[in-house]
């Protein structure tokens, strides 16, 4: 089975406002806020961690969910986010530019990053 890799689309603007991730699509300037699962996908979208690993580490480990259902839901959410040009998806790892801000971990307060 092929694996799916996710990366943040470099066209977007993004900021976490009080723990809620706010994203502006680079395609048509539409604003989005991400729900909890979408935010996990966004944070984990480093171009090199495949989706199934993200689901195992960040979703199944933290929430009481069935793995195959979680994987299916995460994949359809990732495709939806890709449809809005928020994420890039590929069956191969996606190289990331150095020093991209979104790759930084959240600050100690979890606040305004």
């Amino acid at each position: 089975m092929s694996r799916l890799y996710l990366a943040r689309n470099p066209k977007v603007a993004a900021r976490s406002i009080g723990g809620e991730m706010m994203i502006m699509s680079g395609h048509d300037s539409t604003l989005f806020t991400l729900n909890q699962t979408a935010a996990i996908l966004w944070q984990s979208a480093d171009g090199s961690t495949p989706l199934d690993e993200i689901v195992d580490r960040r979703i199944c480990a933290e929430f009481d969910v069935d793995r195959s259902e979680a994987l299916q839901d995460a994949e359809s959410l990732a495709r939806e986010l890709a449809g809005h040009q928020i994420l890039q998806l590929s069956e191969a790892p996606i190289p990331q530019p150095a020093g991209h801000y979104a790759a930084k971990p959240a600050g100690p307060t979890g606040g305004s990053r």
Partner: peptide, 12 residues
């Protein structure tokens, strides 16, 4: 959404 996020930003 922008107005909502602005209100949230102001509160915080």
């Amino acid at each position: 959404l922008l107005a909502e996020m602005t209100a949230k930003a102001q509160a915080l």
